[in-house]
Write a protein that binds this DNA or RNA. Structure first.
Ligand SMILES: [Mn+2]
Ligand SMILES: [Mn+2]
Ligand SMILES: [Mn+2]
Ligand SMILES: [Mn+2]
Lengths: 218, 218
DNA sequence: ATATTTTTTTAGACTAGTCTAAACTTTTAT
DNA sequence: ATAAAAGTTTAGACTAGTCTAAAAAAATAT
């Protein structure tokens, strides 16, 4: 059984490993965990002993099959709890992350399976991020940044890349939500900002940065 | 903010203080927490410094107003979560305690208030134990052990004193549940066991011990 | 190719919580 | 009243996790 801390490290290493085959560096983990490199080295040794990661001194770590599976279960719990908070307790999508960060460490298979069922086996959390199933399988759909879409092509908002509360609050304010139909009306040459039409009736300008953080499907 | 461990100690001290004005002894706490007296002494000093308990060396501790309030909030969370697990996730009443023991330590006022509302502001948990409100107020109803009731008087099962999974499973098996109407048909002189009628249609014999652990109202 | 800078690891210290063993205080028995 | 027993506290050690400072290795610049 993994400790609270071990689970958090493992999740960080998993996220840093995603979509990349090379080793995750000590400094990257320290950065993501807001901790010091020396602490990371200590933890790396522990996780390596438990065969959750492979470790080569001075060259970083690679997550193992077993480690990935454990990390996916933590992510599964995190996203199911976030879904619960929004769907059942009427949290807004910017309020759920910190609480889910605690709830994801509750140890009970029965609980998580029953929660999954209660929620109707959702496949994505309130931010559009996929929820791994009980076997760790993730349903992936190709999504592209809104910034990369051509003008006047219809698309649907599917997820946010950066889920910081302030960005999420901003999105709610301008009327962007997961599932919203959007078209780009005009790309502003000068700064890369976009004028978009949401829901067929709301025109707004969003920055290049914002458009980069919104993922859509055509 | 209290740690996980501090909360557990405080809850134990609160429970040992209930319905009694004299000090709680180190050994009693150690017993309840399944730990050693030396560890208790260490923790006692910490809680005392935080003014959650009063401590007189060699003579045990007394919980303070502030300590009681903190303990009640942990108990509130514990019982709300147990209610959630049974009402919403279809757990049985013997399955919820250990999970609630973890969930009670999640730190979020918003979460607990929303959960309370989601559950319809329940006043008792699945074992019939009262749920403190957000101000720590407990609604108390006078309940007596079924063992102390006179023969042929109608009563309703309100709560269980000992909530161990095996006792709860046994109760379910014989058809006893919170809210069940019961009458004592006969008290067996020999061993104090009772023949009772549940729901007006199920006759069973229960031990004196069992009858002592079932609390009822007339 | 060598020197400098950057990154990583090690060494040693600190906190929270736990334990055993020893010392001390209170209670109980004679 | 004194001795024995029981309960409590202290002392010192251990684990998990963290940190700073120093040492070591790798990457980069000259
Ligand atoms: Mn999140
Ligand atoms: Mn976490
Ligand atoms: Mn319980
Ligand atoms: Mn607990």
């Amino acid at each position: 059984m993994l400790s609270f801390t071990e689970e958090n490290y493992l999740k960080a290493i998993y996220r840093l490993s995603e979509g990349g085959t090379k080793s995750v560096l000590t400094s990257e983990i320290a950065e993501m965990m807001s901790t010091k490199a020396a602490s990371v080295t200590d933890m790396i040794k522990k996780l390596s002993l438990k065969n959750l990661i492979g470790y080569e001194k001075y060259y970083g770590v690679k997550i193992t099959k077993q480690g990935k599976s454990e990390a996916l279960m933590v992510i599964r719990k995190h996203r199911l709890w976030e879904t619960f908070l929004v769907e059942k307790l009427q949290f807004t999508w910017d309020e759920v992350h910190d609480v889910a960060e605690q709830l994801e460490h509750i140890q009970s298979n029965l609980l998580i399976e029953k929660l999954d069922e209660f929620l109707g086996f959702p496949t994505a959390d309130p931010h559009g991020h996929p929820i791994p199933d009980k076997n760790g399988k993730i349903q992936t759909v190709r999504q592209i940044p809104l910034a990369d879409l051509v003008t006047s092509k219809k698309c649907v908002i599917r997820s946010v890349k950066d889920g910081s509360p302030s960005f999420l609050q901003y999105l709610s304010k301008i009327g962007v939500y997961i599932g919203a139909p959007v078209v780009i009306l005009e790309k502003i040459e000068f700064d890369g900002s976009l004028e978009i039409l949401i829901d067929g009736n709301k025109k707004v300008f969003i920055s290049r940065d914002a458009a980069q953080n919104l993922l859509v499907t055509e």
